[in-house]
Amino acid sequence: MQDPIMPVSILPASQVPAPPILQVSGLHKWFGTLHVLQGIDFSVAAGERVAIIGGSGSGKSTFLRCLNFMEMPTSGRIALDGTPLGRASAGKPDEVRYPESELCRVRERVGMVFQQFNLFPHMTVLENAMEGLVTVKRMKKAEARERALRELDKVGLGNKTDVYPGRLSGGQQQRVAIARALAMEPEILLFDEPTSSLDPELVGEVLRVIRQLAEEGRTMLLVTHELGFAYHFATKVIFLADGVFHEVGTPDEVLKHPRQERTRAFLERFTEFSF
């Protein structure tokens, strides 16, 4: 049977160009002698949904992880609402220092869902979803509980609140992780290969939740290998290779009619068995 999540081509894209929430300029990342990101300029505005694709080792996860400072950029600046983050040291514009409070503020507004879920195993599902609200937002327990329950309901796990994550399937765990991120009411949601560590039969339930968020018009960035999903999900697709944006455009442009040879080769390898 065809998965019901696939045929969606009518998701609303933002019509009026909104001012960018997050802006990246001249982003470089080195791991030792490895130049993973080689100068990236990018911005994301409210309502945009960006799918980032590329081969393994292309730097796509690293790029995403730089946006909420899970990785520290080696050079380049990231701005939130037009204000650059961190302080450049005098005389060395490449050396930016980031005070912890500033990083925490960014991460509060830019949520993330990980490939490995990263749920807290010593807390129940409900406690996981409440944790950011209580500890970071200092919300009252009762209020946090209410909001956490609402988000868990939305991902279809309102009946698993008192279970520990270890008892859940991978798909359920990932949905809890999404609820945990949603509860913080982030302005941007980052998804780092959210279905890559799931058994094939569990991928659908997670993608369905992500699609639902897209219908709500949320701003999201998604690193993924699910090209079919990316096509229907995104307002913009980025093909990353060797640490640079190789091709950027609408899903139609990049996935159906790529202009670059490199993109075409990549897509061919992926679609070899799909059609």
Binding site: N68, M70, E100, S101, L103, C104, R105, V106, R107, E108, G111, M112, F114, F117, N118, L119, F120, E131, G132, T135, V136, A177, R180, A181, M184
Partner: peptide, 9 residues
């Protein structure tokens, strides 16, 4: 990372 991503110090 999971904790940091929620904005924890």
């Amino acid at each position: 990372e999971g904790a940091k991503a929620l904005g924890m110090t």
